[in-house]
Simulated assay, not measured.
Amino acid sequence: MKTIKTEVDVETYSELVRMRRSEGLPSVSALFLKMCGVLTDDTEAREIVEKARRKITRLEAGTQFRLRELFGDERWEGFSKGARLRAGRLFHEYAEEASHGILLLGKTSANHRRYEKR
């Protein structure tokens, strides 16, 4: 996989973040891909999982959560449904590896997987 880097000033970055939020996207990179017409559910899902991994590092040990709880309802609903479903599968695979300090718990009545930070 290739990486694209773009340096911008603080004002431009702030504007890009504002645009990203208004589009309901997980990152400025996803905004660029969407604006170029090449953002797929798979790409967006990988971005969601990466954001979730970073958010988990800030949680206290023993904290239980669902993937969507890491983002808040409004932000989570802003992601495409296909990306949310793929992100759930990808995150489950990530947690299943059992080497990242995430414990798999049962499912909720709505069939959403619960996790716990170790």
Rank of each mutant, 00 (worst) to 15 (best):
M1V: 08
M1K: 12
T3Y: 06
I4E: 12
I4G: 05
I4W: 09
T6I: 15
D9F: 06
E11W: 10
Y13V: 00
V17G: 09
V17M: 14
R18G: 04
R18T: 11
M19S: 15
R20C: 09
R21T: 10
S22W: 01
S22H: 11
P26T: 00
P26F: 00
S27D: 05
V28E: 10
V28S: 10
A30Q: 07
L31K: 11
F32P: 01
L33R: 15
L33W: 11
L33S: 13
K34A: 08
K34S: 11
K34E: 10
M35A: 12
M35W: 06
C36T: 06
C36M: 12
G37V: 09
G37W: 02
G37I: 05
L39D: 04
L39R: 03
L39F: 02
T40R: 11
D41Q: 11
E44G: 14
E44C: 12
E47V: 02
I48M: 05
V49P: 01
V49E: 05
E50Q: 09
E50H: 07
A52K: 10
R54H: 09
I56Y: 12
T57G: 08
E60N: 13
A61G: 02
T63F: 00
T63I: 01
R66E: 14
R68K: 15
E69L: 01
E69W: 04
L70C: 07
L70F: 02
F71I: 07
F71H: 06
D73F: 02
K81R: 10
G82H: 06
G82W: 02
G82V: 03
R86G: 01
L90V: 04
F91Q: 04
Y94R: 07
A95L: 04
E96D: 04
E97C: 05
A98M: 06
S99R: 15
L104M: 05
S109R: 15
N111I: 00
N111R: 12
N111P: 01
H112D: 11
H112L: 13
R114K: 13
R114F: 07
Y115K: 03
E116V: 07
K117Y: 04
K117H: 06
R118W: 00
